[in-house]
């Protein structure tokens, strides 16, 4: 799983300070190691009930999807009769920390691959079967299962010369005013963090707990589902699932959450 050239280019280097203000007051990274713009995980803004539910590995409803994912991992699929386990053996070992490095750049195609994309890449190229659609029970279960293998590990999305352009794009989207409400992500999730929006406390908007079981959804959903919901919230045109725009935003968010630990499957209101 190489990520191309390991060249140390700091995302800040070509940006003047006034163009985009730094997200958190930290110094720029000195090496290729991504210096985490450490923030607060969304769970710290949640109620005691939600925090307890996420922390309880049995009561957490998202664990039902993890359990299902474990079964799918071992079940052969496609004409070649290959299971995930046929190549990757024990996920508890082979998949540990993998999700924490996603999304990553697919250097061959120059596109961003999130964990859902990687799963479907495997399904198409290794298992020779059909890709799963976003929010299908199987894709959510597999995503939950894979991300669960990185639980407790720090997110480590690095920005280099190869994925820099996509990162810039994601950053621009994060800071772009849009929709009838003319709001950017940055307004709620950086400038108004901790303030109230009706009965919600605005969080920093990290994706480190995805896929999450959201009480509102009454099911598990992907980060893209939540992002689409945000686009809807500000009354902007909603990108399709898997759209380049959402992938670039996911990359930016992944970098932005680097250092926070993976909490999948998370629980939210």
């Amino acid at each position: 799983m190489s990520i191309g050239i390991w060249c140390a280019v700091t995302p800040w280097s070509s940006h003047s300070a006034e163009s985009i203000p730094p997200i958190f007051s930290i110094s720029p990274p000195a090496s290729s190691t991504p210096l985490a713009p450490l923030g607060r995980s969304g769970i710290t803004f949640a109620s005691p009930d939600i925090r307890q539910l996420q922390a309880d590995n049995f009561a957490n409803p998202g664990m039902l999807w993890v359990t299902r994912g474990e079964t799918i991992w071992r079940t052969p699929s496609g004409v070649k009769g290959q299971a995930c386990a046929s190549c990757h053996q024990d996920a508890q070992q082979s998949m540990q920390g993998v999700s924490a490095r996603y999304p990553r750049l697919d250097t061959g195609r120059g596109t961003i691959l999130n964990i859902e994309g990687q799963i479907n890449r495997c399904r198409q190229e290794q298992q020779a079967t059909t890709p799963w659609v976003y929010e299908s029970a199987d894709l959510l279960a597999m995503t939950a299962y894979l991300n669960y293998q990185s639980r407790g590990m720090p997110i480590a999305v690095t920005i280099d010369t190869d994925n820099r352009t996509q990162w810039e794009r994601g950053k621009a989207i994060f800071h772009r005013r849009q929709g009838q409400m003319n709001l950017a992500c940055v307004h709620c999730h950086e400038q108004l963090v901790g303030r109230k929006l009706l009965t919600d406390t605005l969080s920093e908007g990290h994706g480190n707990a995805y896929p999450i079981y959201r009480l509102e959804w009454q099911t598990v959903g992907s980060l893209q589902r939540r992002l689409r919901s945000c686009f809807n919230g500000v009354r902007a045109a909603i990108p399709d699932y898997g759209a380049e725009e959402l992938l670039a935003l996911e990359l930016y968010l992944g970098w932005r959450s680097s250092g926070l630990t993976v909490e999948a499957p998370g629980v939210r209101r």
Binding site: F58, A59, P61, M63, L64, W65, R68, Q218, T219
Partner: peptide, 9 residues
């Protein structure tokens, strides 16, 4: 005893 069942209800 604890039980959790996957069902949309």
């Amino acid at each position: 005893i604890r039980i959790s069942i996957q069902h949309a209800m």
